[in-house]
Design a protein around this nucleic acid. Structure first.
Length: 263
DNA sequence: AATAACACCAACCGCGCTTGA
DNA sequence: ATCAAGCGCGGTTGGTGTTAT
């Protein structure tokens, strides 16, 4: 006896969402908020399952989503967080306001993985490929990232990046040390040294100063841009869909989305 | 110009966790 | 304590666009 399907699939639409469907879902959530995803498609007049609606909202329609490619700084942060947390995309995404776990996961699978391999690093362990074994699972019940998580609060703080800064400082990223105090290559330096066009390591780390973390904490342009953007448009999105009905600036939102964000 | 190979990403699937009856 | 509904997460798939041959 298997698990019952999340919904009755007969007669339900699948595949890419149309503009009309997006508008219906958007309008419904803006006007009513979300209390039960299962009921959303029925009430919104959509021939979709609730799960599909939730995915569409969280990955595409949410007003606080940040559009565009991930910056090099964001990539570096993703790598460092992944080395601590493993494939816990939602936890990693929590450090990137406006980015979804799906987006980060896709980016990891399609780009970062390859880059790490090119650099001779194992995307899973973040260590040089075929190094002498340093991690012995038998020695510990928990994986390295599980151990790491015990000492980390991976939830959102007032300034997630500042939290990361302290993490980085604690763990010696600026010194090129890993969690165990061993020699460790800075991803930022590796990134700078990798000429993706010619696919070769240029190797002048001394010129490479762009790491994920700036110790003065002043260089997070994407966040700065975003916060000013939010201020300008008077949007106060709080990561909680329950707060949808209380947004101010609803008209700005609707205008924004009537322009269309479709492929 | 045709088409094969590759890259990207939206969407789906199924499992596990949480919550409430 | 048990069970089922609902939700969230991570892995995977498939469609579409781009590049190489």
């Amino acid at each position: 006896m298997g698990r019952q399907p999340c919904c009755e699939k007969v007669g339900l639409k699948r595949g890419p969402w149309t503009v009309d469907e997006d508008q219906k879902l958007m309008n419904f959530i803006l006007n009513n908020g979300i209390h039960c995803w299962r009921m959303v498609p029925k009430l919104a007049g959509l021939m979709r399952c609730g799960k599909s609606c939730r995915l569409r909202w969280t990955n595409y329609l949410r007003p606080d989503l940040k559009r565009g490619a991930l910056s090099e700084m964001e990539e570096n942060q993703i790598i460092q967080l992944h080395s601590r947390l493993g494939n816990r995309w939602s936890k990693i995404a929590a450090h990137f306001p406006g980015r979804t776990d799906n987006e980060i996961k896709n980016h990891w699978n399609t780009r970062i993985k390859k880059r790490l391999k090119l650099l001779g690093l194992d995307p899973v362990t973040h260590k040089p490929i075929d190094p002498p074994e340093r991690y012995h699972p038998k020695d510990s019940q928990a994986t390295p990232w599980e151990e790491e998580e015990k000492s980390l609060d991976v939830g959102l703080s007032d300034n997630p990046c500042r939290e990361d800064l302290s993490m980085a400082k604690q763990d010696g990223f600026d010194l090129g040390l890993d969690d165990n105090g061993s020699a460790f290559l800075s991803y930022g330096m590796l990134w700078e040294g990798l000429d993706m066009e010619n696919m070769k390591i240029q190797g002048n780390p001394s010129n490479s100063c762009t790491t994920a973390f700036s110790m003065d904490g002043s260089v997070y342009p994407s966040l700065v841009e975003e916060s000013s953007l939010l201020e300008d448009s008077k949007l106060y999105w709080t990561h909680s869909v329950d707060s949808v009905p209380s947004w101010s600036g609803m008209h700005s939102l609707e205008e924004m989305f009537s322009i269309g964000n479709h492929k």
